[in-house]
């Protein structure tokens, strides 16, 4: 077999799933961001459900989906 024709293990569907997974991870980290506490005031929003509950959950969903993306076979 010529080296140029070697089959590659990941295909189109894999990359689409992986891209969605990456998008989820990025979304998670965006959800996690926001204003912070300062030396003058304590900001309760630092612990809002969006930043503390939803963001990590979305990130983990993304990280797990990435595994599906790698292992997916037609």
């Amino acid at each position: 077999m010529r080296r140029a024709d070697e089959p590659l293990c990941l295909g189109r569907t894999n990359f689409i799933i992986m891209a969605v997974a990456a998008a989820l991870v990025v979304t998670g980290f965006v959800l996690m961001s926001g204003p912070g506490c300062t030396m003058r005031e304590f900001v309760a929003d630092v612990f809002s459900a969006r930043r503390v509950v939803w963001a990590p959950t979305v990130c983990v969903a993304g990280y797990l989906l990435m595994i599906v993306g790698i292992l997916w076979r037609r």
């Binding site: 996690m32 961001s33 506490c37 300062t38």
Partner: peptide
């Protein structure tokens, strides 16, 4: 990234 983001939020 979690470390950077949460440290920037300066929690207790």
């Amino acid at each position: 990234a979690q470390v950077l983001i949460r440290a920037s939020a300066a929690p207790p």
